[in-house]
C-alpha cells in the first residue's frame, strides 16, 4: 500500500496552485490528506502530480462579515471546533464535527477537503446544505460562486473543473436564538454516518418561523427536506409537529448499497429527523 510515484508541488499562493492545476494533467489537490492519502496508498487514485495546499496562505481561518461566516477552505476541522465565532454563531458545526472521524484525523481534515471529497454521508456537506452555503472557487479565469445546491453534480463529484480550487465557504448564520440539533447514526463512534440529520429552527411565540432540515447519507448527496421545512412553518414547536417532518423524512428518496437498504435509510431518516428537531426545539432560546 504505497502510492504510485508522482511529482509533488508546494505552491504558496492560491494563484500558483491554480496555475499548477492548469498546467499539469492528472493533478490532484492535497488538503488534509485524510481522504486522498488512503486512496493514494491503495492506488485507487494515481495522479501524476500532487499539489499540496498546506503551505498556501490566505485560504484558511474564519471571519464574520455582515452576518456571513466566511471559512477558508483549508480551515481544519479541529480549528472549526475550537473557533469562537463558529461556536457562537453556528454551534451546530462543532456539535456535528464531534462525529467526524477522530481527533487525530480532525487535526488534519479541512472543510474544503470534505466538501470536495463529497462523501454522501459526510457531516460538513450536510451542514453546508442546511445553511445554503456559497462556495467560492478559483480558476485560471478568476473566481466564481456556487450555491451549495449546485455543488454536487453526481455521486462524490463536485461542481469543480480540473483546474479549479475551492477557496472559501460562506453562509449567513441564523439568529442568536435559533435552535439546532445534529443527529446521526453510525455503527461506531467516528464512522461515516449511515444517515445524518442537521436541523435548524427559529421559533416565535411557540410557533416555528423558520426551519432547515438537511439529510446526509440517504442519497448520493445531502438533501434538504424542503417539503417538511415548509410544513413546519407556523406550526407549534412540539413533538407532534416534528412527527409530521419525520413522516416526510421516511419517504425520502434513498439509495441501497452492499450493507444497507434504502428502506433502512428511510427509517433512520425518520427517527433522526424527529430526534434532531426535538433537540433543536429544546434549544431555541424562547426568552
Amino acid at each position: 500500500m504505497k502510492p504510485a510515484p508522482f511529482i509533488y508541488h508546494n505552491p504558496l499562493t492560491p494563484e500558483d496552485a491554480v496555475s499548477l492545476l492548469a498546467s499539469n494533467e492528472e493533478a490532484k489537490i492535497l488538503a488534509g490528506g485524510q481522504s486522498l492519502m488512503p486512496m493514494l496508498n491503495m492506488r485507487f487514485v494515481v495522479p501524476d502530480h500532487v499539489i499540496d495546499l498546506n503551505n498556501v496562505t490566505g485560504i484558511d481561518g474564519v471571519t464574520n462579515r455582515d452576518n456571513l461566516l466566511e471559512i477558508g477552505a483549508m480551515t481544519r476541522q479541529c480549528d472549526l471546533m475550537a473557533n469562537d465565532l463558529v461556536k457562537s454563531k453556528a454551534p451546530i458545526i462543532p456539535e456535528a464535527l464531534e462525529h467526524v472521524g477522530h481527533f487525530q484525523t480532525r487535526n488534519r481534515c479541512t472543510i474544503g477537503g470534505s466538501l470536495c471529497h463529497l462523501d454522501p454521508a459526510a457531516e460538513l456537506p450536510c451542514l453546508m446544505a442546511a445553511y445554503d452555503a456559497n462556495l467560492t472557487v478559483q480558476g485560471p479565469e478568476g473566481q466564481r460562486e456556487i450555491p451549495f445546491i449546485e455543488w454536487p453534480l453526481a455521486y462524490m463529484i463536485p461542481n469543480l473543473a480540473p483546474d479549479e480550487l475551492l477557496t472559501k465557504i460562506s453562509f449567513r448564520y441564523w439568529s442568536l436564538n435559533h435552535g439546532f440539533g445534529f443527529e446521526e447514526f453510525a455503527r461506531r463512534h467516528g464512522d461515516f454516518a449511515i444517515v445524518a440529520v442537521a436541523a435548524l429552527l427559529e421559533v416565535d411565540d411557540g410557533k416555528i418561523t423558520r426551519a432547515a432540515i438537511s439529510i446526509g447519507g440517504a442519497n448520493i448527496s445531502p438533501v434538504r427536506l424542503v417539503k417538511a421545512e415548509e410544513a413546519l412553518i407556523g406550526m407549534l414547536a412540539n413533538e407532534d409537529t416534528y412527527k409530521v417532518a419525520a413522516d416526510i423524512a421516511q419517504e425520502i428518496e434513498s439509495i441501497s448499497d452492499a450493507y444497507v437498504t434504502s428502506q433502512y435509510r428511510q427509517r433512520l431518516a425518520g427517527t433522526l429527523v424527529q430526534r434532531a428537531l426535538v433537540k433543536a426545539g429544546d434549544r431555541v432560546n424562547r426568552s
Binding site: N10, G33, M37, D52, R108
Partner: peptide, 19 residues
C-alpha cells in the same frame, strides 16, 4: 502510526514525509 506533529496527534500514514 500516530505521531505528534507540532504538538498535535496525526496519522503518519496519511502524511507525506515532505510535508
Amino acid at each position: 502510526c500516530t505521531v505528534i506533529l507540532d504538538g498535535e496527534a496525526v496519522r503518519s500514514c496519511l502524511m507525506l514525509a515532505v510535508q
